[in-house]
Design a protein around this nucleic acid. Structure first.
Lengths: 225, 225
DNA sequence: TCAAAAGTGTTAGATTTACACCCATGA
DNA sequence: TCATGGGTGTAAATCTAACACTTTTGA
């Protein structure tokens, strides 16, 4: 291989995944106890090293796939974290990505095999290295994103009630919303379709189930550039 | 040195700077013709490699300093760019940063020595590799940032007229603003101080000069978290 | 029969937008 | 004297936020 930049030094580059889920009306993050040195036993995001033959985006997707077996997952870059001493063992620059998954789609056996757990984002233990900072930034970005794009559906089952949807927005924004104002806004979104199905699991009366219509969303002139 | 991650491969990591300036009512970016292979002669952002002993933020600041001799410059990370073939010579992951400088503070001799030029962001030549993508993302982030924080002053002299400030916002947003509505909003911002000084360079009548008061900004309760 | 969640409109206030003329001055 | 950019306020429209009661049904 030609070495154009031989006078410079190479550095380990990793990816770390902030995997968001939504369960029991709480926004959750998937973390596990670190199984390698340095930092063995500390709570940590799941990550991996970037290989020479893959893009950083692909490295993030691969890492997520290793952990969850899931593909076609919504992932977005959070940013690069590169303090000199962020990894106590070696110089490692890490690129954080957040992912949005529906917790029901994640096989719980697989989750246990990897020893990772869903923890409430409002109630997280101290994390390894700068991982807390990554989570904070990821949450901030996701919160901004959800204001302008309907990415929240990634965190819900394909059929959901309006109350579930409201609780999701509340968990993401960290504040309660007015039920009537919320429903009014939802009604204006043609890509949220009411079905004739009723969910009786959370109330005696039952609530209509809704679904996100991607096709209608892509056609919505309010969201064209 | 202990080698914890010896089974993985290291990668070159660079930083690239999107340096924004404001001149003749246009938003400009500083670019130059690349002086090294691969890509020699192509228009390119100014960049450099991250060293083992410095953080990525420090690498960006150092790179900017090398080019401009300027310190204490406002810089923010744009993100990591890591397609496998983004650099035709070697695998290089690059972290882009944008900087806001006042073009008058940049010594023009130094600029010429480095062979870089201010080009209108609306009228840029094709750029090396993924640099255009970096510029686009940087601009988008800067545009969002300026909506909530008064970072625009970094692009202006310390004394400026309201028309200059309006033109800056127009250049950043890419659309014209209503003069009266703009001035109404500015008047509400206590950290933009009117001085008794008059600028006669752009009109016969002359226009009052204003200044940004950082102290008043830091105290503004509208901007506390 | 009652507890618990679902569902539904209106009004006041705040914010945003549109819009046109006089002023001061140097050439 | 006139061309040029500087400077100023109001009203309509839109958006946002606050708010309370009825319905259904299983236990």
């Amino acid at each position: 291989m030609t070495t154009f930049y031989s006078e410079f030094q190479k550095i380990f580059v990793s990816v770390d995944c902030i995997i968001f889920g939504f369960e029991k009306n709480k926004l959750k993050v998937l973390i596990g106890k670190r199984k390698m040195d340095p930092g063995r036993g500390e709570w940590s995001l799941y990550g991996g090293f970037v290989r020479l033959g893959e893009s950083i985006d692909d490295a993030a997707l691969r890492t997520l796939f290793e952990l969850t077996g899931m593909q076609n997952v919504y992932m977005r870059q959070v940013g690069a974290f590169g303090n000199v001493d962020r990894d106590p063992g070696e110089r490692v620059i890490s690129i954080a990505y957040y992912a949005l998954i529906n917790v029901n789609d994640y096989d719980d056996g697989l989750r246990q095999e990897h020893g990772v757990e869903w923890v409430d984002i409002e109630d997280m233990p101290p994390l390894y290295s700068d991982h807390r900072e990554m989570v904070n930034k990821a949450r901030m970005l996701m919160k901004e994103k959800i204001k302008t794009e309907p990415v929240g559906f990634r965190l819900l089952p394909s059929l959901f009630t309006l109350t579930q949807l409201q609780r999701l927005y509340e968990a993401v924004n960290g504040e309660e919303l007015d039920k009537r104002n919320f429903r009014k806004r939802i009604k204006e979104m043609d890509y949220i379709e009411k079905t004739e199905l009723i969910d009786k699991s959370s109330s005696k009366r039952g609530a209509f189930l809704y679904r996100f219509n991607r096709h209608a969303y892509d056609e919505d002139p309010n969201f064209k550039l």
